[in-house]
Design a protein around this nucleic acid. Structure first.
Lengths: 332, 332
DNA sequence: TGCATTTGTGCACACGATTACACAAACGTT
DNA sequence: AACGTTTGTGTAATCGTGTGCACAAATGCA
């Protein structure tokens, strides 16, 4: 590969080395382009020898297409989203698209962060986070061409969305718990401001209402194990509930630990505990959680389909609805 | 903000609107630039009105500085790295640097992926993954200017590294286990090809050797809960060991579950189980793992320091050594 | 052979910003 | 008032590719 620390060479320099013009270099790297195959082979050989690769930044400027995708997420470590993030990143990489992560957790200024990403002319935006208002995202990205993929249904021509319906699975789960004789339900929210949290809560509230019941108590955590633990202790002490529906799986595990260790109640006999998301960890032997689960692969398939629609310049927003299923464990 | 679906405007168009030249537009957005403050204020007002922001792609081309950072990771969901990834992303965002994730898991072609990222002229590369040979990374990125931050010490002027020393903590942990009367040790590796796995194993092997002991058995997993569970079953059936040192915390949890549920042995009395990484989940009440732990904040501080050295054009590679500590739980 | 068509290559400009240089206006000094 | 310095702005080149256009060479067809 020649000397170690050499500057990356440009198409013009390579052109000189190969005895052609820089336009021909460009064509050699463009698969469907009028160019002699002998010339192309020679150029590619010289390019390899000198470690030349076209500069994607310059190409993006010219193309008006960056092949960058902004992923707006709450956090990276959080298992709730992590499995989906992982899947999506793989699918993007297979399409030669590079993901830029925008992480909304903590106190970073989310709007400024999105504005920064938008200056990089990302081709697509996928919003996983429920901490950012979809309207803000539209305002910031609407000048670039990306369509935004999001859970939140928003009536806007630039937003494609994925709707999630867990009402059926919630009904099944409530049915089982009620038949097991539980009567006093509590809901442990992830965040009180999030619309997705309200949606999830509504699935279960409706299922209860159908049976003449309702949530006797409601607590607010932050999707973390610690908050699940802490809030469950309070719920069990103060409200004496015998069933806790949690906003995600991690809090459910925290709640289960709290019930067992602090209060001395075990699932599913003394108390029923339900998670949401269906993360891999929920199925671990030590957890074995009953959870309202979303098919991660189907979800990411849907995201990719929306992205491809957009890439193919199919106009207008599109919406896909996915249905959750109940995954049974020993906690309810 | 005016019409909804308008194309993003350019500095030249904004210049016409504000009655100045495009050079002046650029200066208005460059904090330390010779420009009248009245002009700047007027331009910024017009810019806000029309939703103008400088195009980062064009700026990068001119600057030779993209403000993009490539993060080479094994996987996103994997808790081992996730906490560090999360911390690093925040620190980068605070510096107006955008992270591009390169995910090496599964069967994607890691080299091609790194080549793709290198065409985006990333300013820095941080290699978390132990699935990629550092020499490959250097070969691919050496033409761009980034210094690579990595665990693996490599004698190359373009690589800064962070060395991790867990020998002291491993010694403490082995000491405790041996004094508890355990005699038959097994090591459960993450991957058999990884140099970092060999390093970790050596810390414990040395501590054993100091006491005239050695590993009676060795198994190979893939850092996942399932592999920890499965390999532990085999180890306990075939080799009858009474202490398992695991390559990471997640496998340790799997091994603990296997011992308890399949074999009927409990920690720490029947068997000692040790993890590595010190992830938050290890401290959860239901896990309470004894683990060889790395201070994640200190680690990311070190990464950021190396990045800043590089940004400040301080020449040459640099190396920082961090020391691990033992974190005690009820599994050993 | 003569002419129409295809193939392969170079020239020159565009993409959207930054910046060295030039220069006019405003300012300070004696 | 004369002159040197600072300040603010415009002009034009540059970053590295992609591509429409022009044109020469090669090919096909009668």
């Amino acid at each position: 590969m020649g000397g170690m620390n050499r500057r990356r060479i440009t198409s013009k320099e390579l052109a000189k080395l190969a005895g052609v013009s820089s336009a021909t270099i460009s064509r050699a790297f463009s698969p469907d382009s009028r160019i002699g195959s002998a010339t192309r082979d020679r150029i590619l050989a010289v390019a390899r020898e000198h470690g030349y690769q076209p500069n994607a930044i310059a190409r993006s400027l010219n193309n008006q297409r960056s092949r960058l995708v902004a992923l707006v997420v709450n956090a990276i470590g959080n298992p709730c989203e992590a499995e989906e993030q992982q899947l999506l990143v793989h699918r993007l990489q297979a399409r030669q698209l590079l993901p830029i992560i925008l992480c909304c957790a903590d106190h970073s200024d989310r709007l400024q962060l999105m504005r920064l990403a938008s200056t990089y002319q990302v081709d697509h935006v996928v919003v996983f986070s429920d901490m950012v208002s979809m309207q803000d995202a539209v305002d910031i990205f609407h000048t670039t061409k990306p369509i935004i993929v999001s859970f939140e249904p928003l009536d806007n021509e630039n937003v494609s969305s994925i709707r999630i319906d867990g009402s059926g699975a919630a009904d099944e789960i409530i049915d089982k718990i009620v038949r097991d004789g539980k009567k006093r339900f509590a809901y442990l929210s992830g965040t009180n401001s999030s619309w997705i949290d309200k949606l999830r809560r509504k699935w279960f509230a409706d299922a209860l209402a159908k049976r003449g019941l309702s949530f006797e108590a409601q607590a607010f955590g932050d999707y973390s194990y610690d908050s699940g633990f802490k809030e469950a202790v309070l719920l069990l002490h103060r409200n004496k509930v015998d069933a806790i529906i949690c906003g995600n799986d991690v809090m459910a595990i925290g709640a289960r630990d709290a019930a067992r260790r602090v209060i001395g109640k075990n699932t599913p006999d003394d108390i029923a505990i339900v998670g949401q998301d269906g993360i891999a960890m929920a199925a671990w032997d030590c957890n074995d959680l009953t959870t309202l689960s979303l098919d991660h692969v189907a979800f990411i398939d849907a995201v990719v389909e929306l992205i491809e629609r957009h890439d193919a310049e199919i106009e207008g927003p599109h919406s896909i609805t996915l249905t959750c299923t109940a995954r049974w464990g020993s906690t309810a």
